[in-house]
Design a protein around this nucleic acid. Structure first.
Lengths: 146, 146
DNA sequence: TATTGTTATACTCTATAACTATA
DNA sequence: TATAGTTATAGAGTATAACAATA
């Protein structure tokens, strides 16, 4: 406990909501990555996996679009999830596959959801229920205008 | 105008504030990176530069700590800013330098601040003034509990 | 011993471009 | 023509580990 008490600098970005949002998001993401590491999945991979489980039969292009991940970037993710026997593919037509999660996945996703819930409580526990509702509403409004 | 109307998938992460925060933050960051590209600076570099301008004489370790950037990662950033004649160094003691921004920087930072202000208005214009105040308060609360 | 700056290295996520095959 | 999947490649940004020099 050296209690270093770092000198506080002037922060010219402090008044910017975008800056504060980025700092909170970055910290939360690092925390979540650490919480998920025991499952061998990054936040992005876990998100893709949960999305496939919730939408069986969708193509990777469709999953990617709804997550904001480009086709070129989701291809290796899908390949990794398939290598790890977390998902499998079925032919949809000659150029696309339907994605489904495997039996093994159904033993994994409940743990993922539990980890995310605990993570959520840890990060946003500082807010009251009303505040959380307001925050969710504001974030939804921001997402729909971008 | 093909008005593709992409099929909406079920999003099991939708109820998570952390997920919504990450989506909004990622979109805002991509937008800011694009807005700043004409100045030849990334959001991170612009932030470091503004921080040095606001806190003349601080060391890079100090700047890095207050921005959450590790020493190993801020070193090449400082080197780049110095190469571009945006900052210069003075010996503080045998192992550290004091950082100062150059005259050229003072012609750049007002533009950076203007770009960021416009960006902020673009992203958060969907919120009313009261909402913005609330959001700022909540983000501050979240940052202090991490 | 702790701190500063630095280099090397690896990982995650993202971006563009180009290609094949199919609709 | 547009879309799906893939590969190659590059660029941010971050992480750890190690090192020399200094406090």
């Amino acid at each position: 406990m050296s209690e270093s008490r770092e000198k506080l600098l002037i922060d010219p970005l402090a008044p910017f909501l975008g800056y504060q949002l980025r700092r909170v998001s970055a910290e939360a993401m690092a925390q979540l990555a650490s919480d998920l590491s025991m499952e061998g999945l990054s936040p992005a991979l876990a998100t893709v996996l949960l999305m496939i489980e919730a939408n069986p039969g969708e193509t990777q292009a469709s999953i990617g679009r709804s997550l904001g991940i480009k086709r070129a970037n989701i291809a290796p993710m899908i390949a990794k999830l398939e290598d790890d026997d977390l998902i499998y593919r079925e032919f949809a037509d000659g150029r696309s596959f339907r994605l489904y999660c495997s039996d093994r996945t159904r033993t994994v996703t409940p743990r993922l959801m539990r980890i995310m819930k605990r993570h959520e409580d840890k990060i946003f526990g500082a807010l009251g229920e009303g505040e959380k509702t307001q925050l969710m509403r504001m974030l939804a409004a921001l997402r729909h205008t971008e």
